[in-house]
Amino acid sequence: MIMHKTNKLLFLIALFTIELFTLKYAHAHHVLGRPSYSLNEDSNTPPAIQMETQIGDYLVNVMVFPAFPQPNEPGRISFYASHLDTAIPFDGNITFMVSNNSWMNWLGFESLKEKIGVQKIDDNVYRQGFLFKTEGDYIITAEFHAGGQPYIIDFPLRIGARAPIGALGITVSILFLILASVSLIQRKRAMTGKIQNTHEQNNQQGKQL
């Protein structure tokens, strides 16, 4: 009985040792000492969308967290604006607005803008939180005044994954429509041809008689 218990113990130790050496990956649930469930849009995680541009006298840098924002999940925009010549950060109020980014915008029709917040500088950064309830393509507009000039910066923001079935569905529908239309026209052509042939044959037979 004692022997049996020892064997069992040895077997477990051996199994543990083998497991230890063969395990390649460990499923960590802590990131830099913090439990993963406590990570949010303010955590020190890599940004997703990053945009850098020069506008007027300012160099603007925008980052959006998290990598791929989802509906009903909070996200955050970090906005940096520094003067091109002096590198001094802009210090004032920045108004953040949102509008739909539809194909109508391409034609020059502007969507209705909704204010999401006015932010003051905080440690050289303007932080604007957001939470979208529906997925879609949006335009975020950041607006501020400096040196008597208005500054307006637009950048796109995608919430949620795009609908792939939509693109495939539209393609298949268009293809089906084209091929079906061509097929119908061809049938009509064939029928007209047959009628013409029969008509000509009847005419010839009539002449012979």
């Binding site: 795009r162 792939p164 693109a167 495939l168 393609t171 268009i174 293809l175 084209i178 061509v182």
Partner: peptide, 21 residues
């Protein structure tokens, strides 16, 4: 990648339409 796939689908539509016509 999504826009690349859309372009590929558009190319199929254009090519098929041209061949059908």
């Amino acid at each position: 990648p999504y826009a690349t796939a859309l372009l590929a689908l558009v190319m199929i539509i254009i090519t098929t339409t041209s061949m059908a016509l």
